[in-house]
Design a protein around this nucleic acid. Structure first.
Length: 497
RNA sequence: GGCGAUAUGGCCAAGUUGGCUAAGGCAAGGGAUUGCAAAUCCCUCAUUCAUCGGUUCGAGUCCGAUUAUCGCCUCCA
């Protein structure tokens, strides 16, 4: 099936047909984090979304070069390092490692290139020099270098800023010697221990914005396909990147700009002062990584996404359902294990995959794509429920559904653990959280089994009730008693108080 | 103050380059199944898209106004 890929481009404010610069290839740059502290779940959301988008582009046959930077030279890093009594680069390298570990725990795949600013100082200096040569930048007698905003006639095109309106709002800092209040720093003349370099303009360090322009051009060229980041970066960061890059190259910078929404917690913007600030590390203690990813998938990437207990409760229930379904299906397949693989070649329930592709090609509509995922699991359960059909048919159909779902689930990084691993991890979390032990559950279960074989249903119902109050629901199946977490149990697992 | 968004059923949410019956999830109700349950499956569940006005043969979708919420304009994914 051939589909057109459409992307909402911040630059035009419209959904556009995507045309790569080079057929079959995509260069994408997404702003990473400034590593002055541990990453929070807002960073996680952005990283998960771009991870998913990049994976999907790969699945669709594009050869993707994905660049995600670490900004490890920055005022906040310097300030924080001073507080801690370590050098800025010590702090940043520690935080880079922490960020890598966090993303790894969320099963976010590393980008093709993950450059850090401190490795590109000479390129940054050359870039700034070039801007000065072209008249887009000037040095002050203090040794600072600024970008001459009014020289770039289309400045403001990304965020629709009007320069004169901006001028009224600009913070006036009496300290500097800017030609124009709108101009922004490319190079700051400050000699902070461990965070300055020598340059033709004097000793100092790069300003914010310039590093992304430099690293993007290093890995992707003057013009590339997609630039992304959080919505909060549109102005001034991305606007300034455009100014720098286009000022230097005279070419379009990125052809498509995509911006992810921001993450809120219980509908409030996450901030340290309101106490709803959550690092990835802490979030993972509360929620399984898959649950965090599932939550991110419930809204379109461009809108804000809310983290709240209610949604986590629903999500955990769905993940439980997915795994229960897969586990039942696999059980049947394992037992049979004698289906002819050749029969399955070329046979796929097309509509499920088609629906997924249609949704994803339409501006990466992940929530809509999730409909196809749900449809797939429902179909598997439908087949499992079928009565009076040949076993061979069931197996054949189940296998094709599972094979169809596999690449879709891989893009989303859902159900990539074995179901037994999933259940044991969730159950361990549960037992730990409620201070229960598996032995308690099993001994009650044993007693109930005995009562039941004596047809003492009053006693067996009482014991089931006892387990139910612990959030464990017991099922009687042809194979005997099975237990799992009840809806109330799952809800307890995502509640924090 | 400037810029940009958003407003869809009890809750979450897709749809917004106008066009057959407004996706899906959760909750709720009914049924199949079960010793009773649980799980699973099936069925039902918005004449209506913040309000008002306009354009059009036709608007949730476009235009204008109003109301509300949010983001950015200072560091932010």
């Amino acid at each position: 099936m051939s589909l057109d890929l459409k992307i909402s481009n911040t630059l035009s404010g419209k959904k556009e047909l995507f045309k790569p610069l080079e057929d079959g290839k995509i260069g994408i740059y997404a702003c990473g984090v400034t590593v002055y502290d541990k990453c929070h779940i807002g960073h996680a959301m952005q990283a998960i979304l771009f991870d998913t988008i990049v994976r999907y582009l790969g699945l669709s046959g594009y050869d993707v070069t994905y660049v995600r930077n670490f900004t490890d030279v920055d005022d906040k890093i310097i300030a924080r390092a001073e507080e801690l009594g370590i050098t800025p680069l010590e702090l940043s390298s520690k935080m880079i490692q922490s960020s890598i570990d966090d993303l790894d725990a969320l099963r976010v795949r590393p980008a093709t290139h993950q450059p850090k600013v401190s490795d590109f100082i000479s390129e940054i200096i050359a870039f700034i020099q070039d801007l000065m040569d072209k008249g887009f930048a000037y040095a002050t007698e203090d040794g600072d270098v600024y970008y001459r905003v009014r020289k770039k006639s289309d400045y403001g095109k990304l965020s629709n800023q009007n320069l004169d309106a901006l001028q009224c709002n600009v913070r006036v800092d009496g300290e500097d010697n800017k030609e124009d209040a709108l101009d922004f720093a490319l190079w700051k003349s400050e000699k902070k221990e461990g965070a300055y370099w020598s340059s033709p303009f004097g000793e100092g360090r790069p300003g914010w914005h310039i590093e992304c322009s430099v690293m993007a051009s290093q890995f992707l060229g003057y013009t590339f396909d997609i630039h992304g980041g959080g919505r909060d970066l549109v102005f001034p960061h991305h606007e300034n990147e455009i100014a720098q890059s286009e000022g230097r190259s005279g070419c379009n910078y990125a052809n498509y700009w995509i911006h992810t929404g921001l993450l809120t917690v219980e509908k409030k913007k996450m901030s340290k002062s309101t106490g709803n600030f959550l690092t990835i590390e802490d979030a993972l203690k509360l929620y399984d990584y898959e649950l965090i990813r599932w939550n991110v998938y419930q809204n379109h990437y461009s809108s804000n996404i809310d983290f709240n207990e209610k949604t986590f409760g629903i999500g955990l229930k769905k993940l439980y359902y997915y795994n229960r379904t897969l586990s039942s299906a696999n059980e049947l397949l394992d037992a049979a294990s004698k289906y002819d693989e050749k029969l399955l070649e070329g046979f796929h329930p097309q509509s499920i995959r088609d629906n997924f592709d249609v949704a994803m090609h339409d501006d990466f509509n992940i929530p809509k794509a999730m409909v196809a995922i749900n449809e797939g699991f429902a179909s598997i359960n439908e087949v499992l429920e079928l009565k009076g059909v040949k076993q061979k048919f069931k197996i054949f159909t189940l296998k094709t559904y599972i094979d169809t779902l596999a690449p879709m689930l891989e893009v989303l990084e859902l159900c990539q653990r074995s179901t037994s691993e999933f259940f044991s991890q969730i159950h361990n979390r549960y037992f730990e959280k409620l201070g229960l032990t598996i032995e308690q559950v099993e001994s009650t279960l044993k007693k109930r089994g005995e009562a039941r074989s004596n047809k003492d249903y009053d006693e067996s119902d009482r014991l089931r009730q006892e387990l139910d109050s612990l959030g464990i629901s017991v099922m009687d199946t042809p194979k005997g008693q099975l237990w799992e977490l009840s809806e109330a149990g799952l809800q307890k697992l995502v509640q924090n108080n």
